[in-house]
């Protein structure tokens, strides 16, 4: 049970101080999640903190590789406009 940050991360630092398990760390080329530490915030918060503040759609995946914030869910930009 762990999330993953992928390459679309812009290194904005927003998630790092919010993680109740200190699982998120600064790395190159982008922040990473220590899979051994990540609890998906179970027991600490109703909603996973990193995925709740991350401004980049698609940058955080769950353990099945599913985007926690799919395209259009944060910016309101219709996905077909994003692709263009």
């Amino acid at each position: 049970m762990a999330f993953e940050i992928i390459e679309s991360c812009t290194n904005c630092y927003a998630c790092e101080p919010l993680c109740p398990s200190q699982a998120i760390y600064e790395a190159k080329p982008h922040f990473l999640i220590d899979a051994d530490k990540c609890t998906e915030c179970a027991g600490d918060f109703e909603e996973p903190q990193c995925a709740s503040i991350c401004p980049i759609e698609g940058a955080i995946l769950n353990e099945d590789g599913v985007e926690l914030n799919p395209p259009g869910s944060l910016t309101g930009i219709p996905p077909e406009k994003l692709a263009a």
């Binding site: 290194n11 944060l74 309101g76």
Partner: peptide, 15 residues
């Protein structure tokens, strides 16, 4: 770099 809101005039891929 972190932000706590999203504005429709801002793109967070600021580079």
């Amino acid at each position: 770099p972190a932000c706590n809101i999203q504005c429709h005039y801002c793109n967070r891929k600021y580079d």
